[in-house]
């Protein structure tokens, strides 16, 4: 289903969800939950957005039913730990590649994905200062390395 323009800010979280449907359904579920909450704040009133969000809610309810045996889904506190560990794992992979001077597209994507996953953590409450800093650094690094590679420069 096409994403209405008003909901464009959630497109990257939805894409991350899709990429994790098979790899890690818990990550996929919470990315969609974050997209749902943000989408409702952005525009839950116009017919095209409501239609999209109702479909997204259907999908979330179905996922929760299918994953009901998984404690990371049935208990949000466990889910919080799962998403935080995963976000840090992706961030640390990107950071280690960056520090080793291995600049490649997957490194940019890993930094960017980790920043999206730190966004997702906000469904569980306010982000810690450490996670806010990680998110800011990951977003900046992704943009910086992307620009360097685009301009044929070596990132510092």
């Amino acid at each position: 289903m096409a994403l209405p323009p008003q909901l464009k800010p959630i497109q990257h979280h939805l894409r991350t969800a899709q990429e994790h449907d098979k790899r890690d359904p818990v990550v996929a579920y919470y990315c969609r939950l974050h997209a749902m909450q943000t989408g409702m704040k952005l525009d839950g009133k116009t017919p095209e957005c409501r239609k999209f969000l109702v479909k997204l809610m259907d999908q979330l309810e179905m996922m929760k039913k299918e994953l009901s045996d998984n404690e990371s889904i049935s208990q949000e506190i466990v889910g919080n730990a799962h998403i935080e560990n995963y976000a840090l794992k992706v961030f640390l992979y990107a950071d280690s590649e960056d520090r080793s001077g291995n600049f490649h597209k997957n490194l940019i994507k890993s930094f960017y994905t980790s920043s999206l996953l730190f966004d997702v953590l906000s469904v569980f409450g306010e982000l810690s200062e450490e996670n806010i800093q990680h998110r800011k650094y990951a977003k900046w690094k992704a943009a910086y390395i992307h620009n360097c590679l685009k301009n044929g420069e070596t990132p510092q």
């Binding site: 409501r50 109702v54 809610m57």
Partner: peptide, 27 residues
């Protein structure tokens, strides 16, 4: 009809909010 449309939209928004709360075991 404008206010009817707005009421319908609000009711549907409430329904989504309720489903979200239920999904998160907040009801």
């Amino acid at each position: 009809t404008g206010s009817v449309g707005t009421s319908v939209a609000s009711a549907e928004q409430d329904e989504l909010s309720q489903r979200l709360a239920k999904l998160r075991d907040q009801v």
